[in-house]
Amino acid sequence: DIIVVALYDYEAIHHEDLSFQKGDQMVVLEESGEWWKARSLATRKEGYIPSNYVARVDS
């Protein structure tokens, strides 16, 4: 799995977006363009995230 960590807070604009806080970790489910589908490890919610707001966690 690709794990990313939030670099900034993000408040969902559309209902399919995923809100998150700086430091939150998410599993990337699908990478396509600038918006990635991800699942929050904390809340288990899924939605689209702006890929420029996150960084990959080296395992």
Results as ranks from 00 to 15, higher is better:
residue 23 G to Q: 02
residue 23 G to T: 02
residue 12 A to N: 04
residue 37 K to E: 03
residue 50 P to S: 05
residue 3 I to P: 03
residue 53 Y to I: 06
residue 29 L to H: 04
residue 48 Y to S: 05
residue 57 V to A: 08
residue 52 N to A: 14
residue 52 N to L: 09
residue 17 D to H: 15
residue 14 H to T: 09
residue 20 F to K: 00
residue 22 K to N: 04
residue 59 S to W: 12
residue 10 Y to T: 01
residue 50 P to L: 08
residue 18 L to V: 03
residue 51 S to N: 08
residue 50 P to N: 11
residue 47 G to F: 01
residue 18 L to T: 03
residue 45 K to C: 12
residue 3 I to W: 08
residue 25 Q to R: 15
residue 7 L to I: 09
residue 52 N to Y: 10
residue 10 Y to R: 06
residue 4 V to M: 05
residue 52 N to M: 10
residue 40 S to K: 11
residue 52 N to K: 13
residue 19 S to Q: 06
residue 2 I to Q: 09
residue 22 K to I: 08
residue 52 N to I: 08
residue 54 V to I: 07
residue 54 V to L: 04
residue 39 R to N: 02
residue 9 D to A: 08
residue 30 E to V: 10
residue 52 N to E: 10
residue 48 Y to T: 06
residue 20 F to W: 01
residue 50 P to Q: 06
residue 47 G to S: 00
residue 59 S to A: 13
residue 4 V to W: 13
residue 50 P to I: 03
residue 1 D to N: 13
residue 15 H to N: 13
residue 7 L to K: 06
residue 21 Q to H: 13
residue 42 A to L: 11
residue 16 E to P: 04
residue 11 E to Y: 11
residue 31 E to D: 15
residue 17 D to Y: 14
residue 27 V to N: 04
residue 13 I to S: 10
residue 42 A to W: 06
residue 40 S to H: 15
residue 12 A to L: 02
residue 28 V to C: 05
residue 33 G to Q: 05
residue 4 V to P: 00
residue 37 K to G: 03
residue 20 F to Y: 01
residue 22 K to F: 06
residue 26 M to E: 00
residue 27 V to Y: 08
residue 3 I to A: 04
residue 41 L to Y: 05
residue 30 E to K: 09
residue 8 Y to W: 11
residue 27 V to E: 09
residue 8 Y to R: 14
residue 5 V to E: 07
residue 34 E to Q: 12
residue 53 Y to N: 04
residue 27 V to T: 07
residue 44 R to T: 10
residue 46 E to K: 05
residue 57 V to R: 06
residue 49 I to C: 02
residue 11 E to F: 11
residue 49 I to A: 01
residue 50 P to T: 03
residue 18 L to W: 01
residue 46 E to A: 07
residue 49 I to M: 02
residue 49 I to H: 01
residue 36 W to V: 09
residue 43 T to E: 06
residue 52 N to F: 10
residue 1 D to I: 14
residue 33 G to A: 06
residue 47 G to K: 00
residue 18 L to I: 08
residue 39 R to K: 09
residue 36 W to K: 06
residue 5 V to D: 02
residue 18 L to R: 00
residue 5 V to C: 08
residue 21 Q to T: 11
residue 31 E to W: 15
residue 20 F to T: 01
residue 16 E to Q: 12
residue 47 G to M: 01
residue 44 R to K: 14
residue 34 E to S: 12
residue 59 S to K: 12
residue 37 K to W: 15
residue 2 I to W: 10
residue 49 I to K: 00
residue 42 A to G: 09
residue 51 S to P: 11
residue 6 A to P: 00
residue 26 M to Y: 02
residue 1 D to S: 12
residue 2 I to D: 08
residue 14 H to P: 02
residue 23 G to E: 03
residue 32 S to F: 13
residue 57 V to F: 10
residue 13 I to W: 09
residue 53 Y to Q: 07
residue 51 S to A: 13
residue 21 Q to V: 11
residue 55 A to Y: 09
residue 5 V to L: 06
residue 32 S to P: 06
residue 21 Q to G: 07
residue 54 V to A: 03
residue 20 F to N: 00
residue 10 Y to H: 06
residue 41 L to C: 14
residue 2 I to F: 15
residue 53 Y to D: 03
residue 42 A to C: 10
residue 58 D to R: 10
residue 17 D to L: 09
residue 37 K to I: 10
residue 36 W to N: 03
residue 50 P to Y: 07
residue 19 S to P: 06
residue 31 E to C: 15
residue 39 R to A: 07
residue 16 E to W: 15
residue 9 D to E: 05
residue 51 S to F: 09
residue 40 S to P: 02
residue 8 Y to L: 09
residue 47 G to Q: 00
residue 25 Q to E: 10
residue 37 K to S: 04
residue 56 R to V: 12
residue 3 I to R: 07
residue 24 D to H: 06
residue 8 Y to H: 09
residue 13 I to T: 11
residue 27 V to H: 07
residue 12 A to F: 02
residue 1 D to R: 11
residue 1 D to F: 14
residue 55 A to I: 13
residue 7 L to P: 00
residue 37 K to A: 05
residue 11 E to H: 12
residue 52 N to G: 12
residue 30 E to D: 14
residue 10 Y to L: 04
residue 13 I to H: 11
residue 22 K to T: 08
residue 4 V to L: 05
residue 52 N to H: 13
residue 36 W to R: 03
residue 50 P to G: 03
residue 28 V to N: 01
residue 45 K to I: 09
residue 54 V to C: 06
residue 41 L to T: 07
residue 22 K to E: 07
residue 21 Q to P: 02
residue 32 S to V: 12
residue 49 I to G: 00
residue 6 A to N: 00
residue 11 E to S: 10
residue 31 E to L: 14
residue 51 S to Y: 10
residue 58 D to A: 11
residue 28 V to F: 03
residue 41 L to H: 04
residue 44 R to A: 13
residue 51 S to V: 08
residue 44 R to W: 14
residue 15 H to W: 13
residue 16 E to G: 15
residue 46 E to F: 07
residue 38 A to T: 04
residue 39 R to H: 08
residue 7 L to R: 05
residue 44 R to L: 15
residue 31 E to A: 15
residue 8 Y to A: 09
residue 49 I to V: 08
residue 39 R to F: 11
residue 31 E to V: 13
residue 29 L to W: 07
residue 19 S to A: 09
residue 36 W to C: 09
residue 55 A to R: 13
residue 53 Y to W: 07
residue 2 I to M: 13
residue 27 V to L: 15
residue 41 L to G: 03
residue 13 I to M: 12
residue 12 A to G: 11
residue 3 I to V: 10
residue 33 G to R: 04
residue 56 R to E: 06
residue 47 G to E: 01
residue 53 Y to P: 02
residue 53 Y to G: 06
residue 49 I to F: 05
residue 38 A to Y: 01
residue 52 N to T: 11
residue 18 L to K: 00
residue 56 R to L: 11
residue 28 V to K: 02
residue 45 K to V: 08
residue 16 E to F: 14
residue 34 E to V: 12
residue 32 S to R: 14
residue 2 I to A: 08
residue 55 A to G: 07
residue 46 E to H: 06
residue 28 V to S: 01
residue 12 A to D: 02
residue 35 W to N: 07
residue 27 V to R: 07
residue 22 K to M: 08
residue 15 H to S: 14
residue 21 Q to S: 13
residue 34 E to I: 12
residue 31 E to G: 13
residue 29 L to C: 06
residue 10 Y to W: 10
residue 42 A to I: 12
residue 32 S to E: 11
residue 20 F to L: 02
residue 57 V to D: 07
residue 42 A to F: 07
residue 46 E to M: 09
residue 33 G to P: 05
residue 23 G to K: 02
residue 29 L to V: 08
residue 22 K to P: 03
residue 45 K to W: 05
residue 28 V to A: 03
residue 13 I to A: 10
residue 15 H to G: 11
residue 40 S to Q: 10
residue 3 I to G: 02
residue 8 Y to M: 11
residue 57 V to Y: 10
residue 23 G to Y: 05
residue 30 E to W: 11
residue 35 W to H: 07
residue 18 L to E: 00
residue 55 A to Q: 13
residue 28 V to Q: 01
residue 45 K to G: 07
residue 58 D to G: 13
residue 45 K to P: 00
residue 43 T to F: 03
residue 25 Q to H: 15
residue 8 Y to G: 04
